[in-house]
Computed example of a mutant assay.
Amino acid sequence: MSAGRPRRELAVPVRDGRLAVTHWPGEGVPVLALHGITANALAFADVAEALGPDVPVYAPDLRGRAGSAHLPGPYGLAAHVADVRALLHHLGHARVVLLGHSMGAFVAALAAARHPEPFPHVVLVDGGLGFPPPGGTDVDALLEAVIGPAMRRLRMTFPDRDAYRAFFRSHPALAAHWSDRVRAHVDRDLVGTPPDLRSSCVLDAVRADGADVLHDPEVLAALHRPRTRATLLWAERGLQDEPRGLYDAERVAAAALDPQRVDVRRVPGANHYSVLLTPAATTAVAAAVHRARTTCASKGHEPQKT
């Protein structure tokens, strides 16, 4: 595989430190890409390729993960929104496209609900539309049930990098999609020294973010707010590559989203993870982002080089 688009690493001032941000340079309206609950910035490497060499992409390691694992709490989705706004201020743009995957989609939806002017149209990939669980549900138990191996690995140690990569390669949703870019994403998460390597993800951050996704009324209502405009792309298959995904046509219909504000599209054949990896899926994501960039650009002049 070729090296792909050139990228550089930035350190952006936020509350109590600096946010690690991966930047694929380009021109015009930037894309700020927000990863899932135990992922990192390099989850978007294939999407950055699909967007083409001229689209600027900024993908932070969200607070409590990878290069931003050192940033302290309080955690939660509101903290990520504050960090995204700090990144926006640092870039000096009036508006950007927020692209979020999984938990990152909930961050994007919340940001758009609170701040529609800088985030006029968000792209949500297999996330952002919430369904509250029954009362009394234990957050750790539900996270374990939903994200399975991703949650378990936060309590595990690994003797070397190959063992960590093998853990991911055995994942049913990733096994058929392993690549150099997926390996780079996995490697970015690993911290420590052999034989005591572990995930960089801060468990308290994952718990706080998961609790907000599952229970916070403002987060659950974000996509229903009258000023929130979004494209929701849902993967046909699930987190373990099972035939039923997090969303399906019936559940999306039951949410009664306003079709004038939220464009809902199915991504056939993709699972929760491969929706950021396979050519057909990343083409669909890129198309939604290009449409959102057009919306942003039409709302005012933007600086050109970013």
Results as ranks from 00 to 15, higher is better:
P268R: 11
P13W: 08
L87D: 07
H90P: 10
L42T: 10
G269A: 11
D196R: 11
M103V: 03
F158W: 01
R7H: 13
G130Q: 07
D212W: 00
R95I: 09
H93I: 12
A3S: 14
R15W: 07
A230F: 10
F158S: 03
G64H: 00
G127F: 01
A249E: 14
M151A: 15
G135Y: 01
V57D: 12
I147K: 01
E250M: 01
L98S: 09
S170W: 00
D61E: 04
P303K: 10
D204Q: 12
L197K: 06
V14C: 06
A280L: 12
L239M: 15
E302P: 09
R65T: 09
P303T: 13
A255I: 04
M1V: 03
V206Y: 04
L34K: 04
A270G: 05
F44G: 09
D212Y: 02
P303C: 13
T294R: 15
H177E: 13
R266G: 12
H89N: 15
D61Y: 02
S200A: 15
G17H: 03
S199P: 03
D54Y: 02
H121K: 14
T231M: 05
R161G: 04
A141S: 13
L276F: 01
T295S: 04
D180W: 05
E49K: 08
D263S: 14
E144F: 04
V14H: 06
F158D: 00
L98T: 08
G128L: 03
V29Q: 08
L277C: 03
R229Q: 12
A256W: 02
V182L: 14
L257K: 04
F44L: 10
A184C: 05
T294Y: 04
V191M: 00
P279V: 14
A50W: 11
H35S: 02
G76C: 04
E302F: 02
